[in-house]
């Protein structure tokens, strides 16, 4: 564990707490893509199948995995049951089958072994890299967002960005090579946040509302 990865994981945790806070305090899931949240559940469940093997890494690792699975399912419950009337599917129109299909194909081509752990793991890495797209697409359609929602997306972007220096650090301090699948997918994922990040830094952090140019 190094500084960048710890900070990245904490940023990931923070993003989930920001999202929960947004839904609970506004009593609304307006502006949040249900499809992106469904994809995150799929990502966590397929990636953390190794929990079932009880191959223990650390308490940190196990607790975080359980938290990510549990909180992502809880968010679906909040959106679909508790605050269902505030969820507007008519603007959440990204076709997620166009993400799921190619990720499934990629995971069959690029993986670290044809096993029931490695193929879902690889699939989850590819899927995570594009899981934010329905959310960004929704933002694009509405052209604006509540400030708290932009903090949520920014925390997710920071988490991804921090994993890159983590890999560089690990490359130079450890002697076991590069996780090419995670690194390539991670760079793609981080790149998807660049546009958003620019507006976040130049508008939201300067105290303005998040609005896309017409």
């Amino acid at each position: 564990m190094n500084f960048f990865r710890l900070l990245g994981d904490l940023s990931h945790l923070a993003s989930i707490f920001i999202l929960l806070h947004k839904i609970q305090t506004t009593r609304s899931c307006r502006g949040i893509s249900f499809k992106t949240q469904v994809l995150y559940v799929v990502v966590f469940v397929t990636r953390y199948l190794d929990l079932l093997t009880f191959q223990f890494h650390s308490i940190y690792n196990t607790v975080m995995k359980l938290f990510f699975i549990g909180s992502s399912i809880y968010i679906l419950y909040l959106m679909r049951v508790r605050f269902r009337p505030t969820n507007d599917p008519s603007i959440d129109t990204f076709r997620i089958e166009y993400l799921l299909g190619p990720c499934a194909v990629l995971s069959l081509i690029f993986n670290y072994g044809y096993t029931w752990l490695e193929i879902p793991w690889s699939f989850s890495i590819f899927l995570e890299s594009v899981a934010i797209l329905p959310q960004l697409f929704m933002l694009q359609r509405t052209g604006e967002a509540e400030t708290i929602t932009t903090h949520y997306i920014a925390a997710l972007g920071a988490y991804r960005a921090l994993y890159i220096p983590n890999w560089i650090f690990r490359y130079f301090t450890e002697d076991n090579g590069v996780d090419a699948i995670a690194v390539v997918a991670g760079i793609v994922q981080t790149a998807l946040y660049v546009d958003f990040g620019w507006i976040y830094f130049t508008k939201v952090l300067q105290g303005q509302k998040f609005e896309l140019p017409a």
Binding site: H12, S58, Y163, N176, D179, A180
Partner: peptide, 10 residues
Amino acid sequence: TGAGRKKDEL
């Protein structure tokens, strides 16, 4: 171990 998946990452 060689290049490959980092099983300790989340």
